[in-house]
Nucleic acid binder design. Structure first.
Lengths: 331, 331
DNA sequence: GTGAAAGCGCTAACAT
DNA sequence: ATGTTAGCGCTTTCAC
């Protein structure tokens, strides 16, 4: 047993003391003399002793680890958030365990159970669905997508963007460019987040006396380049003569731009394009994408911070970050 | 204690039997009557009992989890590999814990220690450095980058592409297009993998009587769009009059293509471009990127498979997958 | 200041 | 077929 590694018991024997004292030295609580500490540390160093975290966690009924449930690690946007969460958590001595659900609710549920069994300290959802009400007694943070109010139990909070304002910004920009017949592309599975963007967009158009044509609201099943291509093709073929489109994700906009390019539709002269997120690629395509920037990497740092504060028993509040219009060349 | 969840002991009490029997029922070993099984299952279902994996793992001195150490989860290439690993492992009842090192060797070391303390079952390195010799008694699989032979201890294996052939394919293609003065861009931190590609490339040119000019070998510090831009600028300014460049990663090639576009250098007429990997974006840029495809998602499935076989005590061998030339429009 | 011992939830002998 | 019990490595009372 123990796979060659030594236990606190052997350390105690080698340092000529008891397991209790060794434990006290390691964790720096309780009292012990300078000399015993010295002896214990020597043995620990010499044998490069590593405490068994499993036993520690069992005893304390808590793992010093946070589960990060993300709906698609392959997305630049989510991966960026996750990377920040991980590095921030790491600095606080927590381990981030990343669980990728592929936008699959079944997997989401399995992961939540598993994290519970493993006595994790908390969960951060990055873009999760969480539409079924899965109970969990762990502290939870939702990032990016806000779940239906029903699952926003206490001991949970939300971190995301001011999506309403994001929609406004996009609408305003298009109006300012004289694009009076825009389309909007939404991700169909999301609720609150997307709805807010739609509301803001609609408001901006209405303010300019150009109410949004309901037929110009398009939906997409997956946030992929291909999804962006296809919806753009649908828009062109719809016969609605849209002069611009606001995609609620840069990935979609980039797929759309590619389609227009192949279809020999000039951007922005023929059709103007706007995205949302501002992923690194957006500034690199030709022409560079005009978009609404979300501070999505900050979501990650903030989420890590919040959950650690929750663990300390502090109360934390929802955080709504500002968005920003990034002028480039597709409008 | 126990956070509201009940233990095997309480299940035993409620089902009017002993902990041993409950354990036997749960794990399906040992013998028990149909009737007791029935009673136990009822209680388990009624209370939605979830065994404490911490205790189980402590007892068995092994977690049913595999650590996946990846050097940058933000990369499409690595993320794709990781996603396959995770889904394959999941199907076998293993949990994949993803550890992102940001190409940082210190983090790599910390993660390895941690996975050891937590008694994980094995480790999969995706693009790791692992240049320092960190001991670890766990089975290890290396994916994509082959570590120096010194750290290829037994109980470890490598899964990757035939990089030599990849280099050949790129060189051949450029020669066939009459591009007699190509440059090659390598990632400086990698050893074996990159060296093989260089060797293959060099061989192909030599075969055509156009030995590679050593000044036309360029290095990049980070595999990012920006890295690709910068190295391309350096190539243009070098005064070497290269007529084509082979980037050993699509990301770099895409950054390079963008730079050339801005510098009004026609692709492929002025300069021909080749990448390697074939990430989803490559077919979507304008013009679509000619590249050497790696079956990188298959790396993931294979890695998961191999480590599970290792855990069963089977011996596994290095796996070298074939690469394929993907003709598109940049050559 | 230090040690003995109980006990976290579980599995696997070893009884019966 | 089922129950009793030791013990995995650790922390934490409770004595001394």
């Amino acid at each position: 047993m123990n796979n060659g590694k030594l236990s606190i018991k052997e350390i105690a024997r080698l340092a000529n003391t008891s397991v209790a004292t060794v434990s006290r030295v390691i964790n720096g609580n309780g009292r012990f003399s300078k000399e015993t500490e010295q002896r214990v540390r020597e043995v620990i160093d010499r044998y490069n002793y590593q405490p068994n975290m499993l036993a520690k966690s069992l005893r304390e009924d808590r793992m010093k680890a946070i589960g990060v449930i993300v709906s698609d690690i392959t997305s630049d946007y989510f991966a960026g958030i996750v990377q920040e969460i991980e590095s921030e958590l790491f600095r606080h001595g927590y381990t981030a365990v990343i669980c990728d659900t592929f936008e699959n609710e079944e997997a989401e549920k399995r992961f939540m159970e598993m994290l519970g069994n493993l006595r994790f300290s908390g969960i951060i959802f990055v873009g999760g669905k969480r539409s079924k009400t899965l109970m969990s007694d762990l502290p939870i943070i939702y990032v990016d997508r806000k779940p239906p109010p029903a699952s926003m139990e206490k001991g949970s909070c939300f971190i995301g963007s001011d999506n309403y304002r994001g929609g406004c910004l996009a609408g305003e920009r298009l109006m300012a460019a004289g694009r009076h017949n825009p389309a909007i592309v939404l991700f169909e599975d999301e609720l609150e987040t997307q709805r807010q963007r739609l509301r803001g967009f609609r408001k901006a158009l209405a303010d300019h006396g150009r109410p949004l044509d309901p037929r110009c609201i398009f939906h997409v099943e997956h946030v992929t380049y291909e999804g962006g291509r296809q919806v753009t093709e649908r828009i062109l073929r719809s016969g609605l003569h849209c002069d611009s489109v606001f995609y609620t994700s840069d990935i979609l906009a980039i797929g759309g731009a590619q389609y227009l390019n192949e279809a020999h539709v000039a951007v922005p002269e023929g059709i103007a394009l706007m995205g949302m997120d501002d992923i690194p690629l957006s500034r690199r395509i030709t022409p560079p994408l005009t978009t609404v920037r979300q501070q999505y990497r900050r979501f990650g740092a903030l989420a890590a911070d919040s959950i650690i504060r929750m663990l300390k028993g502090e109360t934390v509040e929802d955080l709504i970050l500002d968005v920003e219009l990034i002028e480039r060349a597709t409008v």
